[in-house]
Design a binder for these strands. Structure first.
Length: 555
DNA sequence: CTTAGGG
DNA sequence: CCCTAAG
């Protein structure tokens, strides 16, 4: 069968999530976690983020499961071992001719009729299905409303007749859209932005269940059926963009087939006139915040595709910072979820199989390692437009980052619950302090390109070489074999973490900001920070004219 | 166990 | 990165 439900565990983050791929193509992940009682609860925002990062950076914890497979959830608290059985796995494969990379079975599934359903056998033997009212649904109940009546595994059609299979929202008035929204999500909305409404509705329909706060959607892989692309075209630029990027990304991977789709996509891209270089979905982004999801991160294009933008993008919206301010309740001893090796995994050429040290089951790593051959030129250029001319400083990026995050904190930090543990802003390196008023620092084209190259190298390694290999050294110790170059995003996260939690609280930073980078220890963070400090101090002190510029701005 | 600092 | 001494 397919590759449809993944378990993502991340011990550092305490995240054990079930990702049900409702749509394999484009993939829609929905996150839930198994709580101590073996119930599915929606993943928290942070878990979502952690998992997202995990998916991007480290696939070693992703297991691919099959229908009928039993999951044991070892819980810290309770004696019993709740189990989750995957009853059905929903796929939403395209109606276009099957991609040669994919299993051809299960291709003709109606998007809204095949939806993942998980049954969990609680430790008490209770069985509950997340799609129907029952034991588990307690945890889902509120989030569930739309889902239950919009067809879960029952095959029921959604509540509204407007939408029989195809979604034609274009002709609807705002009011109609609001109605539809209400029908979809079970709540009113005051948003008047048609684009936003349409987008939300589409998402609500494409998502098997909308965890109103924590569902997130990854459009992954190639763009799906035509119908889907139409949806993209009319409704959501960001999705479309994603598709385009993805398709471009995968171009080299499936040389023969992606052509059609690619051209198709491109034509759509042209039609929609994607002048915007931003990945942020404009209408959605703004309005999402005005509605019930204030400052929540909107759907972000899969970062791997746009890593070049990560420096700006990961915090430009501020959503990340705001949303991750503090949420106590989720340190709950994570329910560990192992996959028991029950049956063979469908051989899907998109996946590499590797040995699972935990359960012995095969970990299937998406073969869609989006290894970029050449970086997207425009993106880079756009990025660089942001950088006014000036001189290049080797760690300007970090400074840049801190500067922006500092700005953000000015905006939102005041109403954010101050974490009493952490107001240690003082420990920011002097460089940073002196530069925080400098909105943009710059580096030369060459430097940027170097950066990108490095990054590509790194992501390649990420995909091909997951484990931390150690080699014995002369003095008997073990040494990590591979020097993992620090990526841009890692550095950014580090700087960010230091800004948030204070330098010195390495374990905190590791736990919270580096949850998904299992290979970076807190010591690594510390060392890296030290190096950054050194580097920055080395550049700045004796006035080569640099400091003058900084002081100009800060004064 | 975490942090700091030297190697 | 590693190692280790110090909280």
């Amino acid at each position: 069968m397919g590759t449809l439900v993944d378990i993502v565990g991340n011990e550092e983050a305490g995240v054990d999530c079930i990702i049900s791929h409702k749509a394999a193509d484009p993939v829609v992940y929905q996150l839930a976690r198994v709580d101590g009682d073996g119930r599915l609860v929606p993943a928290t925002e942070d878990e979502v983020m952690a998992v997202e990062d995990l998916l991007e950076e480290d696939k070693s914890n992703v297991r691919t499961l099959d229908t009928g497979q039993i999951l044991e959830c070892s819980t810290n608290g309770s004696e019993g071992q709740p189990q989750l059985e995957i009853l059905e796995i929903g796929t939403e494969k395209p109606n276009i001719p099957p991609h040669p990379m994919m299993d051809s079975e299960e291709v003709d599934v109606h998007p809204k009729e095949r939806i993942p359903s998980l049954v969990c056998h609680g430790s008490d033997g209770s069985v509950c299905q997340s799609g129907s009212p029952g034991e588990c649904s307690k945890t889902f109940s509120e989030l569930d409303r739309s889902k239950t009546n919009s067809s879960f595994d029952t095959g029921m059609k959604p509540d509204f007749s407007l939408l029989n299979g195809e979604i034609h929202l274009d002709n609807l008035s705002v009011k109609d859209l609001q109605e539809t929204f209400k029908a979809t999500f079970g709540r009113e909305t005051s948003v008047k932005d048609k684009q936003w409404l349409k987008r939300r509705i589409i998402m609500g329909l494409t998502n098997s269940c909308d965890f109103s706060t924590t569902s997130f959607v990854i459009i992954d892989n190639r763009v799906g059926r035509k119908q889907k692309t139409e949806t993209c075209e009319s409704v959501d630029c960001s999705v479309l963009f994603d598709c385009v990027v993805t398709s471009a990304m995968e171009n080299h991977e499936s040389p023969s087939t992606s052509h059609d789709k690619k051209s198709e996509i491109h034509s759509i891209a042209n039609e929609t006139n994607m002048e915007s270089s931003t990945f942020q979905d404009k209408s959605g982004g703004k309005d999402a915040e005005t509605e019930e999801r204030p400052a929540k991160r909107i759907r972000k294009p899969t970062k791997r595709y746009i890593e070049e933008l990560s420096e700006g993008e990961s915090r430009d919206s501020g959503a990340k910072i705001v949303s991750s301010v503090k949420h106590p309740a989720y340190d709950q001893p994570s329910a560990k979820v192992w996959a028991r090796p029950v049956q063979n995994f469908g051989l899907d050429r998109r996946y590499l199989t590797r040995k699972d040290s935990l359960g012995g089951s095969g970990i299937q790593i998406p073969y869609v390692s989006r290894i970029r051959r050449s970086r997207p030129r425009e993106n880079l250029m756009n990025l660089m437009k942001l950088q006014p001319s000036g001189e290049g400083i080797s760690i300007s990026l970090e400074k840049n980052d801190v500067a922006s995050s500092t700005q953000l904190d000015k905006e939102c930090g005041n109403n954010a619950p101050k974490n009493s543990l952490s107001p240690r802003w003082i420990e920011e390196p002097p460089v940073v302090a002196s530069e925080r008023s400098t909105p943009y620092t710059e580096r030369t084209t060459i430097q940027l390109e170097e950066e990108v190259k490095l990054k590509n190298v790194e992501s390649y390694r990420n995909n091909s070489d997951e484990e931390v290999v150690t080699v014995p050294t002369a003095n008997g110790g073990m040494r990590r074999k591979h020097h993992r170059p620090w990526t841009l995003s890692e550095v950014v996260k580090l700087v960010d973490g230091v800004a948030k939690y204070g330098a010195g609280r390495w374990s905190e930073i590791k736990r919270l900001a580096f949850a998904s980078y299992s290979y970076r220890t807190s010591v690594d963070l510390k060392d890296k920070w030290r190096n950054l400090l050194r580097a920055s101090l080395a550049e700045l002190p004796t006035g080569n004219g640099y400091s003058a510029q900084w002081t100009d701005f800060s004064g």
